[in-house]
Nucleic acid binder design. Structure first.
Lengths: 219, 219
DNA sequence: ATTAATTTTTAGTCTAGTCTAAAAATTAAT
DNA sequence: ATTAATTTTTAGACTAGACTAAAAATTAAT
């Protein structure tokens, strides 16, 4: 069965919301991320349920079915592979690629995405450190922690980000925080959970909890 | 102003029809190429005229305005650059890329297409020998002839095709006719205008007028 | 355990882009 | 120069996907 652009965007966003939780997903939370009104979302959920891509109970929220999940994963795979292309081959920065990949992820061609994968040398992660699902829909488990969970005086490596909005990525760039950086947590303020970090041997920088939470690291 | 997918497809097709002729373009001819009904075409022509992309007189056909033409050219530029990418970088054959490029040509990003251009080393022609419009909408004039116009016993070089349907391209491939081949016209049948060709020093092959007409050559 | 607040759904409307059927204009044919 | 055939346009209807406003269900608060 074929998927429209609108349907693909819904499935992708429902997937993202499912990831965090075992709870069913609320209409409102979808409305927020799709920038649609709740009424429109209800409409679409009924269509998606009709097609067998979500299980949906009136007033009780929604979840992806196996098929729905595999459609979502294939879109995410395409999105992330195109991001690798844009950064590695065309020379974009990591904060510039999201919008373009949002368009490219809807190009429909099985062979295209596999040839692209091969051209890029089968990358496992995208430019933000997010794992790239395989053709079969397997996501390499990377076991990263949020920087906000790292203990005082521990050292870790910046492996990715949990959010890829341009402003956030630009902030990291300004702070000299890039993939692979070695970070030592030299101070944690219990009051607001903000953190001081040493990058390599530089003098410490200060980041808020909000930022620390969205940085993924490996110990 | 922004262009919808449907609008872009109409403009592209009107451009192609304008190319051949100084006459205004008929509703029916557009209907045929867009695979829409004439009534739908009329509707769209009125919208395009409204936006200033075509001049349109009821019952008198349609032409692109300067702006309409530049939109069409930018889509054609994108289409052809993506085709080069698909063939040169991803290893597709020339008869496999049209459908995918039809999708990619609608990706909207000024920077993307220029970075792609640079990544591909500023190609002047696509995998079918068609010229790639510049960012400013200039089309390199290649001065090619149709093979059907070549005189008896003349020798020429295959530079491109005037039609890029998969079946046609596959036929050429089967006949060993590829870009750059040296062709000698050894016989022209006045009855049906079919042609016998020698490719390099091989024994002659026979092609119909229909095929010869769609092969572009340089003397 | 009611009432109030919030969330979700229904009902009805809108737009873009398509369609069919019928009317109008143009072109071709006698 | 009429009539016939063809092309094009109008009119009205449909679908996908969005919206607003109002109704219904759920959740929270007293």
């Amino acid at each position: 069965m074929t998927t429209s652009l609108a349907e693909e965007n819904y499935l992708k966003i429902i997937y993202r919301l499912c990831e965090g939780t075992k709870e069913d997903i609320s209409t409102n939370s979808i409305a927020e991320l799709t920038n649609n009104k709740a009424a429109s979302v209800t409409d679409m959920l009924q269509k998606l349920a009709e097609k067998g891509w979500v299980t949906y109970q009136k007033y009780q929220g929604v979840r992806l079915t196996k098929i729905g999940e595999s459609i979502a994963l294939s879109i995410i795979r395409k999105h992330r592979l195109w991001e690798v292309f844009l950064v590695e081959k065309l020379g974009y920065n990591w904060d510039e690629v999201h919008e373009i990949a949002e368009q490219l992820e809807h190009i429909e061609s099985e062979t295209l995405i596999n040839k692209l994968d091969s051209f890029l040398d089968f990358p496992k992660i995208d430019p933000h450190g997010d794992p790239i699902p395989s053709q079969e829909g397997e996501i390499p488990e990377l076991g990263y922690l949020h920087l906000s969970e790292v203990k005082l005086n521990e050292t870790c490596t910046l492996m990715g980000v949990a959010k890829d909005s341009a402003v956030f990525l630009q902030l990291l760039t300004k702070l000299n925080l890039s993939l692979g950086a070695r970070l030592e947590v030299v101070e944690i303020n219990t009051f607001d959970r903000s953190v001081s970090l040493k990058i390599a041997e530089e003098k410490p920088i200060f980041i808020s909890y909000e930022v620390a939470k969205n940085i993924l690291v490996k110990i």
